[in-house]
C-alpha cells in the first residue's frame, strides 16, 4: 500500500520534471545515434586497409555483438545515475527524513521508487531498442526481440536498485560521483561490452561477475547464437532478479534512519 503511494508520487514528480524526462529518454536516443556515427566511421576504417595486413576486421566490433551490449550499458548508466541522484535529493531536501517520521517504511520507499520507475524504464527500453534496431538494421525474430526488451527492462530495474543502494552512502549529490568510476567504468570494461568477458584474466572476470551488467550481456550473447537454449537465458534472468532482491534487502539495511 505504502509502496503504491510512493510509486505514484515518484511518477507525478517524474512527469513534472522536464529535465529528468529529457535526460532519461532523449539522452539515450542521442547517444545511440552517436554510436551509429562512430560505427559508420569504424566500418570505413576496417574496410579500407589491405586485406593481407588485416585479414579480418576486429571481431568484437561487429555490429550484432556490439550494439546491444552498448545499448544495455547506456540504460544501465543513466538509470543508475538518475535514480541515485533523485534519492540523494530526498535526503538533502529533508523529505526522506520526513517520510520516515511520517511513518513510511524504508523497504516501501525503495520498492516505491522501483515501481514508480517501471513506466519510465519501459518507455526507455522500447524507445532505445526500436532506435538501435532501426539504425543498425538488425534482424531479430519475435522471441529474441521479446527477450531483448526484457533484458534491457530488467537491467533498468536492477540499475535503479543499485542507484538507491549507492545513494544510501551519500549525503549529497557530490558523493555520487566517486561511484561512477568505481561501478560504471568496470561495467564498461569487464562485463563484455567492449571485449568478450571470457577472454579477460581471472581476477577481472570475477569482478565482472559481481556487476549486474555481466548477466545482461550474458543473455545478449546467448540469444545472439542461432540455436540457444532458453534455460540458460532464464538462469541469467534469475541471477538479475536475485541481484535486484539482494540490493533491495541491502539498501533497506544501509539506509540510515537516524543521525
Amino acid at each position: 500500500m505504502q509502496t503504491i503511494v510512493i510509486a505514484k508520487r515518484v511518477i507525478t514528480q517524474l512527469k513534472g520534471d522536464k529535465r529528468f524526462l529529457i535526460l532519461s529518454i532523449v539522452a539515450p536516443v542521442i547517444i545511440v545515434y552517436f554510436l551509429k556515427l562512430m560505427f559508420n566511421a569504424l566500418t570505413k576504417l576496417t574496410v579500407v586497409p589491405m586485406p593481407e595486413m588485416f585479414p579480418m576486421p576486429l571481431p568484437q566490433l561487429s555490429t550484432e555483438k556490439f550494439v546491444m551490449p552498448v545499448t544495455a550499458f547506456i540504460v544501465h548508466f543513466l538509470s543508475f545515475i538518475l535514480c541515485s541522484i533523485l534519492l540523494v535529493q530526498e535526503r538533502t531536501r529533508g523529505t526522506l527524513e520526513r517520510m520516515l517520521i511520517s511513518g513510511y517504511k524504508k523497504s516501501s520507499i525503495i520498492l516505491g521508487y522501483v515501481v514508480g520507475y517501471f513506466g519510465l524504464a519501459t518507455i526507455q527500453s522500447v524507445v532505445i531498442l526500436t532506435e538501435a534496431i532501426y539504425l543498425f538494421d538488425l534482424n531479430f525474430d519475435g522471441k529474441t526481440l521479446v527477450i531483448l526488451f526484457m533484458v534491457i527492462w530488467m537491467l533498468a530495474i536492477v540499475s535503479v536498485m543499485l542507484g538507491i543502494f549507492i545513494s544510501t552512502f551519500a549525503r549529497n549529490e557530490g558523493h555520487i560521483f566517486p561511484f561512477i568510476p568505481l561501478i560504471i567504468l568496470p561495467s564498461l570494461f569487464l562485463t563484455g561490452v567492449i571485449v568478450d568477458a571470457n577472454e579477460l584474466p581471472k581476477v577481472a572476470e570475477i569482478i565482472g561477475y559481481l556487476l549486474p551488467l555481466r548477466y545482461a550481456n550474458n543473455i545478449i550473447q546467448i540469444i545472439g547464437k542461432p540455436d540457444y537454449v532458453l534455460s540458460e537465458v532464464i538462469l541469467n534472468f534469475g541471477i538479475l532478479l536475485g541481484y535486484a532482491t539482494a540490493l533491495w534487502f541491502l539498501a533497506s539495511k544501509t539506509m540510515k534512519e537516524t543521525e
Binding site: T12, Q13, G16, D17, R93, G94, E97
Partner: peptide, 13 residues
C-alpha cells in the same frame, strides 16, 4: 507531528 527547519516538501507537486 514534525515540521523540520527547512520546508522538506516536493516542490514540483
Amino acid at each position: 507531528g514534525y515540521m523540520p527547519q527547512s520546508p522538506a516538501l516536493y516542490t514540483d507537486i
